[in-house]
Amino acid sequence: MPTGGRRHGGGPVRRRPHGDDGAVTVVLAAVVAVALVLAAVLGAVASAHTGRLRAQTVADLAALAAAEEVRRGGDACATARQVAARNGARVVACSTEGSGVVRVDAVVRTGAGDAVATAWAGPRPRGAR
C-alpha cells in the first residue's frame, strides 16, 4: 500500500489544479451544440433540394399531361392543375404558347419554404433534331 503521497509506481501523485474542473464538459457541450446546428442546416438544405426536385417532377408531369390535353382539344391548364394537385403541388402559372406547347409553373411547399419549377411540353417544332 503506498504511503506518503506516492503511487504504486513510486512517483509522486499529481493532482490537477482546481480551476480545470469541468473544462472537458464545457468543450464537449460546445462540440455537441455545433454538431446540432450543422445537422439542422444540412437538414434544411436537403429539404429545400428535395422540394425543388419534387416541384420539377410535378411541373414536368403536369406539362406533359397538359400538352396531351391540348392535342385532344381539351382544357390544358385545368388538366395541369388537376395533375399537380394529385401530386401534392399547385400550378401557379399555366399557358399555351402556340403549336401545342404548354408552359406550367408548379410550386411545392417544403419545410424550408416554397419550391418553384417551370416545365414546357408539346410537339417538337418541324425541322428540329
Rank of each mutant, 00 (worst) to 15 (best):
T3K: 09
G4D: 14
G5C: 06
G5W: 15
R6L: 15
R7F: 08
R7A: 13
R7K: 02
H8M: 14
P12V: 14
R16G: 13
R16N: 09
P17C: 05
G19N: 15
D20F: 14
D21G: 13
G22F: 00
G22A: 05
A23M: 06
V24T: 13
V24C: 00
V26P: 00
A29T: 10
A29P: 07
A29N: 04
A30K: 00
V31K: 00
V32T: 10
V32I: 12
A33Q: 07
A33N: 06
V37A: 15
L38F: 13
L38H: 11
L38D: 11
A39H: 14
A40L: 15
A40V: 14
A40W: 15
V41Q: 05
V41M: 07
L42R: 04
L42P: 02
G43I: 12
G43V: 12
A44D: 09
V45K: 05
V45H: 08
V45Q: 07
A46I: 08
S47Y: 00
A48E: 04
H49F: 02
H49K: 07
T50P: 00
T50N: 10
T50M: 08
R52C: 05
R52M: 09
L53V: 11
L53P: 00
L53I: 06
A55Q: 04
A55K: 03
Q56M: 08
Q56K: 08
Q56H: 10
Q56Y: 11
T57C: 00
V58C: 00
D60C: 00
D60F: 01
D60W: 01
L61Q: 08
A62Q: 05
A63N: 01
A63I: 03
L64D: 03
A67V: 07
A67L: 07
E68R: 15
E69G: 07
E69Y: 05
V70G: 02
V70T: 14
R71K: 08
R71Y: 10
R72D: 13
G74Y: 07
G74V: 08
G74D: 02
D75P: 06
A76Q: 09
C77H: 11
A78S: 12
A80V: 07
A80G: 07
A84R: 05
A84E: 03
A84S: 04
A85M: 01
R86E: 15
R86D: 15
N87F: 05
N87Y: 10
G88M: 13
R90A: 11
V91G: 01
V91L: 01
V92Y: 13
A93Y: 13
A93E: 15
A93D: 15
S95N: 13
T96G: 14
T96R: 14
E97K: 12
G98Y: 09
G100L: 09
G100N: 11
G100A: 05
V102F: 06
R103G: 06
V104D: 06
V104T: 05
D105S: 11
D105I: 10
A106V: 02
A106L: 02
V107N: 02
V108A: 04
R109T: 12
R109A: 11
T110D: 03
T110Y: 08
G113N: 06
V116L: 11
A117P: 10
W120M: 01
G122C: 10
G122L: 11
P123V: 02
R124T: 12
R124K: 04
R124D: 14
R126K: 09
G127T: 08
G127R: 11
G127E: 09
A128I: 01
R129Q: 10
